[in-house]
Design a binder for these strands. Structure first.
Length: 804
DNA sequence: GAACTTGCTGAATTG
DNA sequence: CAGCAAGTTC
């Protein structure tokens, strides 16, 4: 029987080409996952390849899990008996597996008990590093330093190489480079790796140790890489090392869906695949099974504006389908209400309709949450606070980490005084001082102190006994961890540490919720223990599996490597998520919201052509998630930083075929104007329109214009005259009060020459516009906007201002 | 030593 | 509007 007969010709070719390098260029919705799963099944069932010789790598755990399931199902249906399973996993967990067995061979001082630090952990370390270096003023944010370090690591520069490249005149980079070095030292002394290190160390290991490399080459005879367009230099190196021997590598990707450049993804990996593997075969999958013709045309029209692409033409035999539905909302709330109403309609008409709300940034989710809640619609939200990021979960996990790796200072500091056990700042400072003196970890220092062996201990007896108490708690956990399954250790970390007792004592709803979360953690651990038992049935002949069955360790690893997207419920009625996390998913009904200039495309990518192209690919990804109904919307005004700001329609709207759109706006909209003008004039039309529409739809309470630039503020004041002064509450940029109401509201008479709306001259900043005035007399504070310098707050008395 | 208050600054996307 | 750091009070 032929397994592959269920595929179309191209798909079949891709699945059946098993030897040598293969590049599958798979357009959105072209059945990529299907091809991969059939390919794996084909290898096993029809080519008699032992499953353990197969490695498939994806970017998310969820994708890996699904693929595993689908392969299993397929093989079950064909009646194949398995005595091992193909390894389907993510880059990060693959690296962890390799390192847990081999990291000591790197000879960098790491042991296989190493801890994985997530972003939050590493931010903490960087903060501490900056502080120790005396950079604790805020000119150098920890997050900025962190992303600089991460970018550097991903491009293959370690701390030394980075330092070598820094000009000594560049103070900022010199500071970063010092922090970088210190950060690396700290990681090492904590026996900890950050996310980037997982890849770096695995690659270094393969580079360094020929035997290890040979062993894995032998093990993984057939390798598949999903989402290849998102691989970075390190991942590429990893693949190169692993495929050294057989060259049996199959990569699947779509350059139009490359959206992780900012994370180091190198699109040239896919664009130059044929150069990297000269014998490579290429198969293009261009038939789309997912979307209607209209949706596909819209996506194609947008992405055609990009220059950096191989170019492919998606086609479908699906019907044209409905028009793209467009809506222009007054503000963010109105947009959310619109979406909620439409979702309600869809769900009433078709109970099975799955809807998705896609936005550019997570912070946009809130209004939609509120609108849906008010409308009584259940929803699922991806991102934001994930389970493993909750404080109480992190605390308990830190206890677990500590039980396995007591050198982990970050974990220790996290839990040493939670619940409170009398180990406050004073004690910790002294502990830290001694640890530095001895050059030891905090844990080792605690051992010295509690044994009374610390020569220069200045701690009060009370503090020492508190430390003894803590020491006992951890030692106890260590013994539990040594002999019990993961779930039992988790229970011990919650109960025997006094953690849950302290929560219970709080006796609040919040504490109650936390206890429930911890219960959830126990459940997760129980599940984990169960699946581990199942896995134990499978035969494994290689060291890569041997260590992965140390329950607690791998439970913690999986927690560290878990992500929001792993918990997407594919059958939820309504899902809210960022476009990034929507990649790979599909929904019958899709809302792309917040299509405004500065939001989508995001303002930080506006200046750079390459970044703008990435935003456009992101738009392409968003559009192609839709199967049948696509809604696009934008708001005229939006709250930013808690302040209402005017917003322009996104340029991407303008790139869509306007004749495929149906306007659901009541009254005139950007779209109706755009249709009547040529494309080049659209932007202009949008601007002209802003005055018109808002005036007609919101006659009284909202002003026709929002004053968001120095010019328009100046204009505003010209119209009002300079009669309004004082009153710090009359913020010109806030549009919640209409000009009329303001003019008639009682405001004190001008008491000073320099009032809001007047131009002034500053000795250093030059000419500027006064925006607001606070306080009286000598204490008067002015907010002045200086072109090129931004807004400054000045004390009038000292500022040396004169009218200009 | 811990809980509370204030003031300030600053948002993108993720394993 | 938020989260965070520093200051304030019990």
């Amino acid at each position: 029987m032929n397994l592959l007969s269920a595929l179309n010709d191209r798909q079949r070719l891709a699945a059946a080409t098993t030897e040598g390098a293969l590049l599958i260029l798979a357009g959105a919705g072209s059945g990529k996952t299907r091809v991969i799963t059939y390919r794996i099944a084909h290898l096993i069932a029809e080519k008699d390849v032992p499953p353990y010789n197969i490695l498939a790598v994806t970017f998310t755990n969820k994708a890996a899990g699904e693929m595993r399931e689908r392969v299993e199902k397929l093989l079950r249906e064909t009646g194949v008996k398995l005595n091992s399973a193909p390894l389907v996993t993510t880059f990060h967990s693959l690296c962890v597996r390799i390192l847990r067995v081999n990291i000591e061979k790197l000879e960098q001082g790491y042991t296989r008990a190493f801890t994985i630090y997530d972003q939050d952990d590493s931010t903490r370390i960087i903060k501490a590093c900056l502080k120790d270096l005396g950079y604790d003023d805020q000119r150098l944010g920890a997050r900025n330093v962190q992303s600089a370090i991460s970018a550097s690591k991903n491009s293959g520069l370690d701390a030394e190489l980075y330092a070598a490249r820094v000009e000594s005149s560049d103070e900022r980079k010199v500071a970063i480079s010092r922090a970088f070095k210190l950060y690396e030292d700290r990681l090492r002394s904590n026996n900890a790796l950050d996310f980037d290190d997982l890849l770096i160390k695995a690659v270094s290991l393969l580079r360094k140790d020929e035997a290890t490399r040979a062993r894995y080459n032998d093990r993984f005879r057939y390798i598949l890489i999903d989402e290849y367009q998102d691989t970075n230099a390190l991942q590429f190196a990893l693949i190169r090392y692993l495929t050294e021997k057989t060259q049996n590598v199959c990569v699947v990707g779509d350059e139009d869906q490359s959206i992780y450049k900012w994370r180091g993804a190198d699109i040239s990996n896919i664009l130059n695949f044929e150069q990297h593997y000269p014998e490579a075969n290429i198969v293009r999958l261009e038939q789309n099974y997912r979307s209607t013709q209209n949706i596909l045309d819209t996506a194609g029209a947008v992405v055609r504006n990009n220059t950096e692409r191989k170019g492919k033409t998606l086609w479908t035999s699906n019907t044209a389908g409905d028009s793209i539905r467009y809506y222009q909302a007054i503000d963010g709330d109105a947009e959310a209400r619109f979406v909620a109403a439409k979702i309600d309609e869809h769900l009433r008409r078709d109970k099975g309709a799955r809807c998705a709300i896609l936005y550019r940034t997570n912070s946009q989710s809130r209004v939609f949450e509120e609108a849906l809640r008010r409308a009584g619609i259940a929803y699922n939200i991806v991102g934001g606070f994930s389970f493993y990021e909750r404080a109480e979960v992190r605390d308990v996990v830190s206890y677990l980490k500590l039980a396995l790796n007591p050198q982990d200072n970050i974990a220790l500091l996290r839990v040493i005084n939670s619940p409170a056990r009398g180990l406050g700042k004073t004690t910790l400072d002294e502990l830290d001082r001694q640890a530095r003196d001895y050059g030891m970890s905090l844990w080792e220092t605690i051992l010295l102190i509690t044994n009374g062996e610390s020569a220069n201990n200045r701690l009060a007896p009370r503090a020492v006994s508190a430390l003894k108490n803590f020491h006992n708690i951890i030692t106890h956990l260590v013994t539990v961890a040594a002999k019990e399954p993961a779930s039992e250790v988790v229970k011990a970390a919650i109960l025997d540490t006094g953690y849950s007792a302290a929560l219970k004592a709080e006796n609040t709803d919040e504490a109650e919720a936390r206890i429930e979360n911890l219960q959830e953690l126990v459940n997760a651990a129980v599940d984990f223990d169960d699946t581990e038992d199942d896995d134990a049935d499978a035969v494994s002949d290689d060291a890569i599996d041997e260590d992965s069955r140390q329950g607690l360790r791998s439970f913690i690893d999986s927690a560290a490597l878990s992500s929001d997207t792993d918990k997407i419920e594919s059958d939820a009625k309504v899902t809210m998520l960022t476009v990034h996390s929507a990649k790979g998913l599909e929904f019958p009904v899709v809302f792309i919201v917040g299509l405004e200039d500065g939001l989508f495309p995001h303002s930080r990518s506006a200046s750079d052509k390459a970044e703008l192209e990435e935003e456009r690919r992101l738009m392409y990804v968003a559009i192609t998630r839709a199967e049948r109904f696509l809604y696009v919307s934008h708001a005229m005004r939006r709250r930013v930083y808690g302040e209402e700001m005017a917003s322009e329609p996104s340029q991407f709207l303008n790139e869509m075929p306007l004749d495929l759109m149906e306007d659901l706006t009541r009254g005139a909209s950007w779209l109706s104007f755009a249709r009547n003008s040529s494309r080049t004039e659209n932007a202009h039309a949008a601007r002209a329109l802003r005055g018109e529409t808002t005036r007609s739809t919101v006659p009284k309470t909202s002003p026709a214009k929002t004053y968001d630039s120095v010019e328009s503020i100046a204009e505003f004041f010209r119209q009002r005259g300079t009669s309004m002064s004082g009153g710090s509450s009359s913020r010109p940029s806030s549009s919640s009060t209409s000009p009329k109401q303001r003019a008639s509201s009682p405001s004190p008479p001008p008491s000073n020459d320099i009032t809001p709306g007047t131009h002034v001259r500053h000795p250093k900043y030059g000419r500027g516009l006064v925006l607001r005035r606070e306080g009286v007399g000598d204490a008067a504070k002015l907010t002045v906007s200086f072109p090129g310098y931004g807004q400054k707050k000045l004390i009038e008395k000292f500022a040396g201002l004169e009218k200009a």
